[in-house]
């Protein structure tokens, strides 16, 4: 589903590579944690999948497409197949929960009846049914992240990328978000999550790819957050 083939990314000439000759294969329907310290290349990894950045060397393939050869006008089509969730939720403060989620469909030209059908469905999936008319400021952090997940999933993408989705949440709320993402994964979505949340990684015991100064130092199925815990 996602393949990094000897990928290097250097942001500025002479600087240390953000990713250094990374080769990784992520199969359809996998749940993968990308872990590592700040600056280890986790976000760059996700940006390359989204084609927000181009690799300096090597190739990135998503759903069989070589992103290095993907023309700019085809990038929106690629992104319609990828949901994204961020640490800071990135909701629109002047729109209700329903409108925030509907926004993702409106801007790609979906019909009104499709929006009326899909938005309540996805809000129910994330456990926010009944809160359609609330504004983001009226919701807790966990609920706001659920809205962000609903927005990422409303177009039913086969891939979900999450960049530190629990970074702003307390442990109990994080656990709820973790379980929600696991449920989405069990429905067939490929999930790639960059995280610092050791409890989340340890709870789910999924594949863990650890990056250190841009290099893959660990790629372990059913791994834990820290390598010392594998015992």
């Amino acid at each position: 589903m996602i393949r990094f083939d000897d990928v290097t990314k250097v942001y500025a000439r002479g600087a240390r590579p953000a990713l250094d000759r990374v080769s990784v294969d992520i199969e359809r329907g996998e749940f993968v944690f990308i872990v590592g310290a700040s600056g280890s290349g986790k976000s760059t990894f996700l940006h390359l999948i989204l084609r927000e950045e181009r690799p300096t060397g090597g190739r990135v393939y998503v759903a069989g497409r070589d992103l290095s050869r993907l023309s700019s006008w085809k990038v929106p089509q690629l992104r319609r197949g990828i949901g994204v969730v961020f640490q800071d939720f990135r909701l629109l403060p002047n729109k209700t929960v329903f409108d925030n989620v509907a926004f993702a469909l409106q801007v790609i030209g979906e019909q009104r009846h499709t929006i009326r059908l899909r938005v309540p469905e996805v809000l129910e999936l994330v456990g926010l049914d009944g809160k359609e008319k609330r504004l983001p400021e009226e919701l807790s952090g966990g609920e706001q992240q659920r809205v962000a997940i609903a927005r990422a999933m409303v177009n039913r993408p086969p891939i979900l990328l999450a960049d530190e989705p629990t970074g702003n949440l307390d442990p109990t709320t994080s656990l709820g978000i973790t379980r929600l993402l696991d449920r989405i994964h069990r429905n067939g979505t490929t999930v790639v999550m960059a995280t610092h949340d050791d409890e989340m990684v340890d709870e789910l015991r999924k594949r863990v790819i650890e990056l250190k100064t841009g290099e893959v130092v660990r790629d372990e199925s059913r791994g834990a957050y820290g390598s010392e815990r594998i015992a």
Partner: peptide, 17 residues
């Protein structure tokens, strides 16, 4: 800016943004 950032991420075409 926030709105257009989200539009790009969810796959809105450039002309639409």
């Amino acid at each position: 800016r926030r709105e257009t950032g989200i539009m790009r991420l969810v796959g809105a075409s450039n002309w639409f943004v």
